[in-house]
Write a protein that binds this DNA or RNA. Sequence first.
RNA 1: GCGGAUAUGGUGGAAUGGCAGACACGUUGGUCUUAGGAACCAAUGCGAGAGCGUGCAGGUUCAAGUCCUGUUAUCCGCACCA
Length: 807
Amino acid sequence: MSKYDFGAYNPASIEKKWQKIWEDNATFEPSPDHSKPKFYGLIEFPYPSGNGLHVGHPRSNTAMDIICRKRRMEGYNVLFPIGWDAFGLPTENFAIKNKIHPEIVTANNIERFRKQLKMLGFSFTWTSEVNTTDPAYYHWTQWIFLQLFKAGLAYKAEMPINWCTSCKVGLANEEVVNGVCERCGGEVVRKVKSQWMLKITEYAQKLIDGLDTVDFIEKVKIQQRNWIGKSTGAEVDFKIKDADDSIRVYTTRPDTLFGATYMVISPEHKYIEKYKDRITNYAEVEAYKDAAAKKSEFERTELAKEKTGVELKGLTAINPVNGKEIPVWTSDYVLSSYGTGAIMAVPAHDDRDFEFAKKFNIPIIQVVGGCDITNAAFTDINSGTMINSGFLDGLSVTEAKKKIISYLEEKGIGTGKVNYKLRDWVFSRQRYWGEPIPVVNCPKCGYVPLDEKDLPLLLPEIDNYVQTDSGESPLVNVPEWVNTTCPCCGGPAKRETDTMPQWAGSSWYFIRYTDPKNANELASQEAMKYWLPVDWYNGGMEHTTLHLLYSRFWHKFLYDIGVVPCPEPYQKRTSHGMILGENGEKMSKSRGNVINPDDIVNEIGADAFRLYEMFMGAFDQPIPWSTDGARGCYRFLERVYKLMKFVTEEKEISKQHEKSVNIAIKKVSEDYEKMKYNTAIAAMMGLVNDFYAAGTLSKGDLATLLKLLYPVCPHMTEEMWQLVELPGMVHEAKWPECDESKTVSQEVEIAIQILGKIKARINVPTSLDRNQLAEYVLENDEVKALIDGRAVRKVIAVPGSLVNIII
RNA sequence: GCGGAUAUGGUGGAAUGGCAGACACGUUGGUCUUAGGAACCAAUGCGAGAGCGUGCAGGUUCAAGUCCUGUUAUCCGCACCA
């Protein structure tokens, strides 16, 4: 027995002790020396909800903590900041219900989150903390808005909101459940309001192109590209018969123009109103329009299984390429928000049009040959040649597309057009708990931005956070705040009372982290040049299309106006899976399956908790929680702790364990980088099992294990490092390097297959190449017996693995 | 509906096209014990066995959990939840 026997593992005291040491020594503060190589690791800053920390937060945090701790051991200057995304709906609703100011609610929630995060021992740069609701922070959120406004990227537009007819308040989508108000069950309709919009569409192409320059996991890139939804096609004008107007459509298939047998305009299309006198069945159309207004876009496309629609009787359009008169319909599967809000329908070559035409007995004209359209539309664009299409006949779809576009442009009836599904960002909320939009409305000058020197525009103190009956923000009830003077003409003017969405503050927080206390600018050039871009950003897949895209948009804009030094904010983006309840369902209060991190840490300690969250399964997959599994991780740490009893004074890696230790170094180092934490930990468990099987290990063996395990379980590894009298502290040690030469043995067991079936396992020298291995195996007596004199037709040898003999 | 992903023992999961089930959890048996929700040891995919086994149906290959085609189920997102 060694002299290092310290009894039982006691995480509670060890963890407190080391958290204090790290804090007292400012161990994880980045160095001001900017000549050192830097690493900026980022996790999505939490929304400090009233429920406290969710077990999901530590999954992402621990993963990035592991990378950051490893980077420090590799010699990097590391920034790993934390902050609070604290504006938002739940806090405001809580404030309304309990009559407590949201600022106080927020402060309390943050306090609790901070305590919980500290309990888990993350190596955050606590001195860089930011809070989106702090005026010193939202000063710069407002400043960015002003720059967007000045660049013409902020504008006002009529946009629908969800309106509860009984509560008389605007609702977030989340508050609308099955088409009715979540709180009162009242009817929800779409009500149009004038709202601030940001022109993210202007950046659509840049946001696509930028993806080629960054290292995001592929599925994130794919989802972003699909969300932006670029398509190339054409806009074509269809003249309305006996009128001066044309219906403009957007189509990705101008090549099928000869097959257009009807048109569909969205129920909101302006021509319905304009031509109501000519529409003989207007009452029917109007009823349909009202019904459509009650559906969300989501429902409109979802319910598309059973297509509905009404013909606009009395209106006909003329197909510009063949002069044919075709009927005009309205249907809610055509959305006013995409393209021109009107389509030409080619039932032979579009699934939705096909279904619609079948239902309403509209003619179907095939214009791409070589296919069967009796039961379904033919939509493949890579085969078939044009038929029934006049001058396009005989061309391939691609050729036809080019030719028809130049024809349309020549004749002045259409143009080639790139379209994006991406829509502009609705930036207004009729809410209290958000950043005030720094604009005044002047009767003479229109919308005028505040002067930058007047920022931040503070949220006024109010008592009642409820919207007005007309759906205005509660800020309209504060006349002394609303009534102001125009920065332009000095005349009386009114402040904008809508506030910004929660997305605003989270769109640039990673910039503020680099210089969080700067009162003169959002961050200094020096700080941004050193720290940006973020080297590695981990977060949830659910943020892929909104937060990630919004923040890339803002960053690209700031780059274009010369504020930030790099065109992309995040060099690398990875993503974690959600932790589900023990029953495999999403954790929620109502399901009663919520696991509180405090309870787990009380029982098994932060190190075991961290270890379990990394071991529980593949990092990028959703996974159910298992408290039994977590206890298993505690047992592993106990076993590690008790290894000290067997440790010898030998300072080097022992001869006995050099192979397994070096294999573990390689495996753990590679797996951490690939975020394959579960297999990295499995490798360390294997190593510990080897140590126990041998009953002895050197101090060098233990030191290596401690260094590998330190990023996951920093407290207990620091403690053991100290107890066995290793020099310094483990976080100061250098990350171990694998000696490849020590990882191979002389002999290796391979499988012998006959006709693909495993028949035997034999040991062979590791050094044999493919041909040598085949020869060696055929000489083997056991193999000869298996072949039993039959003719060997082919031998496939895979060194280190198997030999397959075909007889 | 659209976009993205996933499917392997009783459970969580491993597996550059090359020995399926590493590493754990759980379970069973044992040792020690006044005791065991402790520790340690052993067994543990199914099947008595030949064999059979990675959601389902096909295909490619000497070889498929992995590649291809189709299909089913589940999860995430869908723009005012964060």
